[in-house]
Design a protein around this nucleic acid. Sequence first.
DNA 1: CGCGATATGTCAATAGTGCTGACGTACTTG
DNA 2: CAAGTACGTCAGCACTATTGACATATCGCG
Lengths: 178, 178
Amino acid sequence: MSGIKGGVNPLFLREEDLRQGIELLFFAYRDFTAEADAILADMGFGRAHHRVIYFVGRHPGISVSELLGILKITKQSLSRVLSHLVAEGLIVQHQGTRDRRQRLLHLTEQGQALERRLTECQRERVARAYRAAGASAVEGFRKVLGGLLDSPLPRPGPAATDGAPLAEPDPLTTRRSA
Amino acid sequence: MSGIKGGVNPLFLREEDLRQGIELLFFAYRDFTAEADAILADMGFGRAHHRVIYFVGRHPGISVSELLGILKITKQSLSRVLSHLVAEGLIVQHQGTRDRRQRLLHLTEQGQALERRLTECQRERVARAYRAAGASAVEGFRKVLGGLLDSPLPRPGPAATDGAPLAEPDPLTTRRSA
DNA sequence: CGCGATATGTCAATAGTGCTGACGTACTTG
DNA sequence: CAAGTACGTCAGCACTATTGACATATCGCG
C-alpha cells in the first residue's frame, strides 16, 4: 500500500496514516465520554440522557422534533429517555403557544446542575487537550473534524437573530437538513 | 461566561469554543461510523463486530486477552460477538503454541474481505477530510485527539522492542496499561 | 504430582440505546 | 366537518455491554 507513488505522500493519505486517524478517533471518543458515562451510570442514566440534557440546555425551549433533528434518532428512542428525564424532574415540558402540539423543553434547576456537572468533565478534557496542543493545532482539529461531517456545520458566527422558537438559527439544529 | 478575563482568550478556552469542540466530536464521530454501521446492520452484525474484525485484522494472531485490553470491554461482551464471527466463518481461532490456553485470532479470507469493505468507508472519509484540511491541519487534529486520550498513545516509531506475543510492540495494544 | 494462578468460555440476569409498527391527539386545510 | 398532516407515545424486538457465578484447560512452581 505504502509508496504507490514511489515516495511518501505528503498529505498523510497512506494506509498507515489513515488507520492511525481511525484508531485515534475511536480511542479519543471513548475516553472523551468515559467520565460522564460513569457519572450517568451511577444515577441510572446513560449516554443518551446526557445528549438530551446537553442539547436542551443548549437550546432552551427546543421542541421535540427539533431535538430529534439534532440527535438523528427516532422519536420513539427519544421518547423513552425524555420521559425518564421528565419523571426524574430534570426536564420540564411546556405546551407551545404558536403550535399547541409542541412540547417545548427546558431544564429544571436540577437538570442544569447535572448538565454542568457532566459537561464539565468533557469541557475540562477538551480544554486540556487544546491547551497542550496550541491554537493552530486546534484550528486543524476543527478543520478535520468538520471535514468528517456528512454536511458541513454552518458557521456559528454571524447568525441573524430572528423570532424563531430557538433564539438563534442554530447551526446544530439547522444541520439536520443533511 | 465569555470574557471572564475581560477579553478573548487566545487559546480557545472560552465556553463557546469548548462546547463547539464537544459538539463537533459528537457529530463527527457519529457520521464517521454511520456508513459502516449500515453495512453491518444488513449482515446482522453491529458496531462491536466491526471493532473485533478491525483489530484482529490489524494484529493477526492476537489473543483474546490482548483484544480485551484494546477494546476495554468484558470478556462476556466480547465472547458473544467473537463466537458469532467464528460461527459465520469470518474469524478462526488457533490454539497458541507457546501457551496452549490461548486462542489466537485470525481473519479468514471472508473476514479480510469484510474488514476491507468496512474500513474502506472510514478510510475514504478520513482521507477526504485530510485532503480538504491539509497537512498542517492533520497534524493539529492528531495532536488534539492525542491529548484527549486517558493515556497517550506511545509513538509508533522508536518503541522499545520486546518479546511480546504480538510481533510488534504495538501502540494500541500496549495502550491498555491505562 | 498437586496447588494456585492464568486464559478462555459460558450461562443467567439486567440495563441502556436504537429501531419498526401501531396509535392517539392536535392542528390545518378544503 | 372530514381528510390530511404534524407531533408525540406505547409495545415489542435487537444489539451492546455489565456483573456474577462457574467450568475447563493449561502453566509454573515446589
